[in-house]
Design a protein around this nucleic acid. Structure first.
Ligand code: ZN
Ligand code: ZN
Ligand code: ZN
Ligand code: ZN
Lengths: 139, 139
DNA sequence: CGGCTAAATGAGAATCATTGTCAAACTCAG
DNA sequence: CTGAGTTTGACAATGATTCTCATTTAGCCG
């Protein structure tokens, strides 16, 4: 065992940096496969598995947000407010999204859950639609 | 083409009835596979594909509710308030759930979306946790 | 600056939930 | 009852995500 306690920070490999870069350059929610494509188009040779692993790690670390679509696909996005808990208004067509806060929702959820005897509460609040740009394009 | 207009109501086959029965006998959110298992254990010989098709049809018809878990699995449940729009407080361990209403949420969502130029709004609000029974069992 | 070792990568196989295929079985209007 | 269009079921095919494992590499030490 390593004498130093705690979990060491993940290594900063060039591929992880590339993933982070790509995410930082766009404000859209995209799937792992989509981010992988983007990286390849930029000349990177990252493997698909690595993109999946990086995104998962980043999501767990709270560096990026992840949402699951109604088709089961997981989409990732680097949000402006890193680490801050928030929700999203996302375009189903292009993935563009904005962070939003839902007034008093957290408190309300806690209360309702407690009233029903539920513990270890978690919640999902997402609003989707078609953004102005996509609507203009006829979507 | 059939002279009568519109889509005819889906046929009531014994397997679709069986699926509906199973759903009506439980208040838990379960996956298609899980419902299929349950039906088989009851002696039914329904095929897995049929269970999937039935659940989808029922969900589209608004007869049952469907939620997508964070692992991408779709869970189905026959809710007390059929056809009424509502949200859920669900146990991540056993699937037990209760219908809940979120005060003024729909109106709020519409407003926020409109302010951002989004059209064809939809939303997801789900609260999950571990129910009292499951907590007692040490989950 | 090398050397070293555990962590990270990539190519491809393997999973898993879900969907598609198509011949056979079935519902139900007439 | 009968015929025609539906629905079913066994199984193949998908598609997203995960796993395997040999190979590379980041980060640490001297
Ligand atoms: Zn966000
Ligand atoms: Zn858009
Ligand atoms: Zn419900
Ligand atoms: Zn429970």
């Amino acid at each position: 065992m390593t004498p130093t306690s705690g979990a060491s920070a993940p290594r900063m490999t060039k591929q992880r940096a590339a993933v982070l870069d790509a995410l930082s350059a766009s404000d859209e929610f995209r799937s792992a496969q989509s981010w992988h494509d983007a990286l390849r188009h930029e000349g990177s040779t990252v493997g698909l598995a690595t993109v999946y692993r990086s995104l998962q790690a980043l999501a767990e670390a709270g560096e990026v947000d992840a949402v699951v679509t109604d088709t089961g696909e997981t989409l990732y996005r680097r949000c402006g407010a890193v680490d801050e808990h928030h929700h999203h208004l996302r375009c189903r067509v292009c993935g563009a999204a904005e962070d939003i806060e839902v007034p008093q929702f957290e408190e309300w959820a806690e209360k309702v859950a407690a009233e029903h005897g539920f513990a270890r509460i978690d919640h999902t609040v997402e609003i989707t639609g078609v953004c102005a740009a996509c609507t203009a394009k006829g979507h």
